[in-house]
Design a protein around this nucleic acid. Sequence first.
DNA 1: GCGTGCTATTGAACCGGTTCACCGCAGCGG
DNA 2: CCGCTGCGGTGAACCGGTTCAATAGCACGC
Lengths: 353, 353
Amino acid sequence: MDRARRVTLATVASALGVSRATVSNAYNHPERLSPRMRNRVLHTARELGYAGPHPLAATLSRGRVNALGLVHGAPMSFGFSDPAAVLFLQGVSEVCEREDLALVLIAGGPDSAVARVALVDAVVCYCDVPAEGGLATIVERGLPFVVVDGPRLPGAGHVGIDDRRGAEVAARHLLDLGHTRFGVVAMPLLEDGREGTADLERQARTRYRASRERLAGYREAIEAAGHDWAAVTVEERSPYGRDAGGRAAAALLARDPHPTALLAMSDELALGAMAAAADAGLAVPGDVSVVGFDDVPAAADAHPPLTTVRQPHREKGRLAASLLLRPGGVHDDEHHLPVELVVRGSTAPPPAR
Amino acid sequence: MDRARRVTLATVASALGVSRATVSNAYNHPERLSPRMRNRVLHTARELGYAGPHPLAATLSRGRVNALGLVHGAPMSFGFSDPAAVLFLQGVSEVCEREDLALVLIAGGPDSAVARVALVDAVVCYCDVPAEGGLATIVERGLPFVVVDGPRLPGAGHVGIDDRRGAEVAARHLLDLGHTRFGVVAMPLLEDGREGTADLERQARTRYRASRERLAGYREAIEAAGHDWAAVTVEERSPYGRDAGGRAAAALLARDPHPTALLAMSDELALGAMAAAADAGLAVPGDVSVVGFDDVPAAADAHPPLTTVRQPHREKGRLAASLLLRPGGVHDDEHHLPVELVVRGSTAPPPAR
DNA sequence: GCGTGCTATTGAACCGGTTCACCGCAGCGG
DNA sequence: CCGCTGCGGTGAACCGGTTCAATAGCACGC
């Protein structure tokens, strides 16, 4: 079976009595060979069952593997369950497709064994890691990379949105509608996986950039309107799914009086929150308004359609990938994409007293 | 800048005056070295800014890259827009994650330039290609592979479902409810991208296995109930999205009398069809019943929730990946996963005359 | 008949490691 | 003091190509 010596470029060369360089040229630089020779080579190769230069070996000399890596903060399989991540992936893959690049999904996070050895030319880090020490593996490998939605790192590109402003706009929308009692359906603030109400002290220690910024945005808007932030309950749940949103909202709505407006840090959380409201016998937006963040496709399809902050997920993916392909290498500059409030049916003035 | 000779394993070796083998061992076989030597090596490496053995080179000697490839029939970016494909990907990625493998998304289909050179140990083909000549590139490269939802190929594994039975069950459900006038919302039958009503002749030439089998299933059930298949309109649309389903359904529902039951070949098509029905002023399921295929998450969330044929997408992904990792290599055997009718709210008896 | 200019082909170095048979040497039992 | 064992370390072959300076062969102009 495998005893049979693998047929390599050298096999073909010696079968024809030509040099290896010639065989190599037949594949990579046809114009340097006489058509006759080229045909002989290709023909013999076919006869011998030689499938062409081994990509790995070729790559070793050339120094390029023609692949973009993508590392996820959360487990990779989660990546596919989060619709926002899927849109992002779609953006990245569009660029890869156009540029004839493979897209390598790197499991286990930025410091996994896979990240250490994955065969890629550059990597997109779609994760919100702590600024210090995060991505150490990637940095050490010396690969060009861009961080999306995460911290700014020296030498790396950065793509993100203005989370704070997005959150602020969402909160202001509810304030404008006349709401005064708010609850926040929060993504994790720290890595400890704790669930529950996050007090001011915990809020101050928030490690994830997105969570921190969105929280800050809510707060700014609410305080600017003259309300007391300390009166706003922040319910933190983990991980990111609808379930989490449902549990957080259930806790918020069980309070008396319950908030009339829920600020959800993502659409998935918001969608879960809407379901929880229904379970609690509350109408959205009649009894309680909900605003999300992300504008994933399911937001528009929800009942009622979800008011949310749109961010250009696909565009973020495209941009991140493009930055890595720029001729001059990665400049460590920052790209902020626009956010926009999309008002739909899940928000309304608070119920009359 | 790059003038500075890259620091390689040899650099470290000569800096220490030891052999390259020793440095290599420090990383790969610590137990073969005295702790003292190992520390010296690691320390010097760090000092020199050596990030460890170049994965590419390591891989060349070892012969394994620790990566699984995934090739898509449709453009890769489509892959992410189809929720069924996303679930499948999730399944594959779970296995990759568990096994510390990278997951390489190969753009441009099974015969693209990327497929020719992608650095992978084995590949999952998630595509319905013609049995003859499809996947030629993969076959030539001699990579182990498994085909999902496509044709059986010698030497390759196969994972699929019983599409025919699934379709049959769906149709029988509608028949049991008393329906007699059917319309089929079809995925593409041929590669020509044609849209419109597919007559019997075109149906007979169907190239895609899934389309062919599902059509056959519908037909068997309907004929078994004593109805005339020729009276069933098959509306083919391309590509696979909701829009396509909407357009097909609009055409079907514009007929007079319109069908009271729509058999959609996928949930995305079905969801589009439901929207089209609403646009046409028809109630689902009051005026028209709709049944899908796939049971994607959005099916249960739809209004009304969609009756559909469930297939285990995630499980398919897991199985396909697992087959490639089996110690003995890929056995060319066939794995059929179960399908199951899920009755929800989109089907009901036809309206009274 | 000879220098010139091409083109087709080649040899050797190189990409950056891994592996394995082998060897020197320290410690140990006798 | 000797031979044996086993550990720590080494040299050389190998993985499968690419690249580039050099060369051989040939037509051409003069």
